[in-house]
Design a binder for these strands. Sequence first.
DNA 1: AAATATTATTTGTCTGACAAATTAAATAAC
DNA 2: GTTATTTAATTTGTCAGACAAATAATATTT
Lengths: 250, 250
Amino acid sequence: MERLKIQNNSVTLVDQVEDKLLSYFREKDLRKGDAIPNEMELTVSLGVSRSVVREALSRLKMMGIVETRTRRGMILSEPSLLGGMKRVVDPRILSEDTLFDILGFRIVLEIGICSEIFRKITPADIDSLEEIVNVGIMYENNEYAPFSEFAFHAKLYKITGNKTIAEFQNIIHPVMTFVKDKFQEFLAPINIQLKEEGRIVTHQDLLQYLKDGDEDGYRKALEEHFEVYRIFVNRKNEYNAAMKNGKDND
Amino acid sequence: MERLKIQNNSVTLVDQVEDKLLSYFREKDLRKGDAIPNEMELTVSLGVSRSVVREALSRLKMMGIVETRTRRGMILSEPSLLGGMKRVVDPRILSEDTLFDILGFRIVLEIGICSEIFRKITPADIDSLEEIVNVGIMYENNEYAPFSEFAFHAKLYKITGNKTIAEFQNIIHPVMTFVKDKFQEFLAPINIQLKEEGRIVTHQDLLQYLKDGDEDGYRKALEEHFEVYRIFVNRKNEYNAAMKNGKDND
DNA sequence: AAATATTATTTGTCTGACAAATTAAATAAC
DNA sequence: GTTATTTAATTTGTCAGACAAATAATATTT
């Protein structure tokens, strides 16, 4: 009874309850592991039906904010910062703009961790990287076997000791392979061009800078290592603009 | 009828349906704006009850993957990469470790965009930053009025032109203010110490490097600007370790 | 032919029910 | 009296059916 009719503008009861639950957790200063009221209690105290409460809870469960053990009730758990991203990062449902943003994000991140790497890298890390580089066959023109490509950069992120950054790298990795695959025709000529100009920076080159402890050299080399993507994004944007002008209505 | 009893290990029907829906969208190669079957059709074709379908859909709605207009049915929409993060980034429910990871993430990001900034910055951007710096009163010891602090760094992210990075900055901003607030007692003495050593880098200093086009100088200054947080995290970790040894059972 | 009224469809919400699991309590066995 | 077994109670997970509200599609009236 007393059905709320506030849902004028697509703000549903479920949305409201989701908010209210989060506010409630904050208000009560509940921490990880603390129990929260069961569904019936929430139903009563929020004045909505169980299905609405369940839908809202379902969302929070997906995000890893609440956890439920049958019969023992529900508890708060610590959500993974990036957990929600996992489901969304499907290159097929992301727009080209966002894909390129992610590409840029990744490059920025890897350049940003330079100083952190040089601060924390150990001889064991160097050995580990060396091994990865050795088993990694470079196919041709700046393209590595997918595994070694991933392993090399993943190792770099790991050296920082920042789990969130490492996890982020894991999540956006599918985007990288998707872009490489889908835009092969754009990337290949750029790599050839860079090769002709002698501007290809290999993993081996990067490793050498790490061995030498040459941070500035490493950073510059890394920028060059990613140059192919910078050129690609610029070229693709020009290409898209040209296509748009060509057939104006699409 | 024929209730699936596969939910042995806390994998509920809703979880399965959520997965199936995402697979279905991929399989059918549905894009942004495409219509998806209505609830009853999904109910029938998935062989589950409407409530299960609704809970799964509710999750996808929250993530911005599907959108619903009453009566017109549901359509696929492009999710924001970071949309899911917004709900999770409540400093109160994140562990200290994750908070520090985010702190590190932010620093890495801001250092990583250096070269991008110098590549794209315009005289208008300089003017804009100058204005922000001028209205920004530095309280004392490396601490700015919250607004100018945010505005200055937000502007830097904006210059990159990468919307995803800018959005990310927006989302983690609450974490920054929370950390500053909560760990005031740890941060204050560090800032005082840095000041005595003449190592405080102000926004004004950073701006000068931008004006001069001195990228390396800017990067080094920025690292110094964030030094307080590096020292803080190290010191806090030592403190926590000491506390843990002090009273072993907690 | 245009404006209005009706109908049908679809999401949002409510209510009530049962299953499964598991903890808590009660009973039986030693 | 203590331990093992059985029973009961609780809570989440799922199903089923109903109605409201909004709106697109259709039919009706002017």
